[in-house]
Design a binder for these strands. Structure first.
Lengths: 199, 199
DNA sequence: GTTAGCATGTAAGGAGTTACATGATTTT
DNA sequence: AAAATCATGTAACTCCTTACATGCTAAC
């Protein structure tokens, strides 16, 4: 029965956590809450809402008084809240990927500090891997390719470098206010978990 | 018969333009030529090569001497060259989208200056629209959302601003060496074409 | 002789968009 | 009363990935 999954489900749960909403509004909020980086069409959203309803994660308060249609307000169920807690606490490799990282960050306020640090540091280590690859390929490229391709790759490299610096600031801020609960050493040493490196 | 389309086709044509290659190598080159921003699996590439062969855009020099399989070298046909010229000369709205813009830039060396300027300026105007939206939503967000969501949106905004500055440099360079062929005024005034603004 | 990397391919399915179809409500 | 925008929904389709299956070739 079409198991719901991914960023869209996560975003819906997170937004409905604040307050019930109908699909149309949900869609706009997803677009702005997730920054630039993701917008969904109704063709994705409405079927997803149906699936999630049938899974019991959300419930439709169908506001049709008489024969009218229109305005279905969705709210989170207890199961939905639980599911959201699961998702928001996930700090493994999957949560440092581009899209997933974005949603996680958007709902950071509902996580605890240890999880936040693990995700931020995980993300950073993921980007550092990418920098390695990029720098290597750029060194080789310098002699083979034209100036445009080079410019493109350099710009890409600098973007990643910028994100790393940005993460460093976030991590520093995170450590600053209240020097972290016990277990801080474990957190500091945490990342660089083995990831499936097929390729 | 499965009309081929999009970034992958474009990239294949562009790379085969340099020299014949087999699929395996094509895949690696696509990954590096297109910077970070796109990599395709074999599950996409090989079927695409088949389709393109059946369309006559590329031809398979099947190097199987006797009963052996393995190593199919693809090369561009006359039709393929023509198709590539069409694609590379396309400077309309579609070419300023993220992915499309990336491929276009990767093959900029095979375009003429007028096309390059139209694409760069188109891309810039597209990003400026995005900046507008982003700045507006950020102004509203400042009072509603938590510091993490804010940080995410600010970082997104700055990334776009950076790309605009980068484009400005590319455009300046483009204009610098040889002050442009006749028709320069038309080129300078060109962009901001009406785009389909449904939303 | 076995592991690693080169090389090609297919089937099933996931995730999302576009285009269409419909209707309610608000604004001008 | 027309136009805009709010609101919901579906069907067809596109594009791509994953997982699997196969075999060659070089290096250790």
């Amino acid at each position: 029965m079409a198991r719901s999954s991914g960023v869209l489900e996560f975003a819906v749960l997170g937004l409905l956590h604040d307050s019930p909403m109908h699909g149309y509004e949900l869609r706009k909020r997803i677009g702005s809450a997730l920054g630039t980086f993701r917008a969904y069409s109704y063709g994705s959203l409405y079927p997803a809402l149906k699936t999630m309803t049938s899974e019991g994660l959300i419930a439709a308060d169908d506001a049709s008084g008489a024969g009218r249609r229109s305005k279905i307000v969705y709210r989170l169920t207890a199961d939905g809240k639980e599911r959201f807690q699961e998702l928001v606490s996930e700090s493994g490799p999957a949560s440092w990927e581009d899209e997933a990282f974005g949603v996680h960050l958007a709902f950071f306020a509902r996580t605890n500090k240890d999880v936040r640090l693990r995700i931020l540091e995980g993300r950073r280590s993921r980007l550092e891997e990418r920098l390695d690859t990029l720098r290597t390929s750029l060194r080789q490229a310098s002699e083979r390719v034209d100036s445009y391709t080079l410019a493109l790759q350099e710009h890409g490299l600098e973007s990643v470098e910028r994100e790393v610096r940005w993460l460093n600031e976030l991590i520093a801020t995170e450590r600053e206010d209240s020097p972290s609960s016990r277990g801080s050493k474990a957190v500091l040493d945490a990342p660089t978990q083995q990831r499936n490196n097929k390729e």
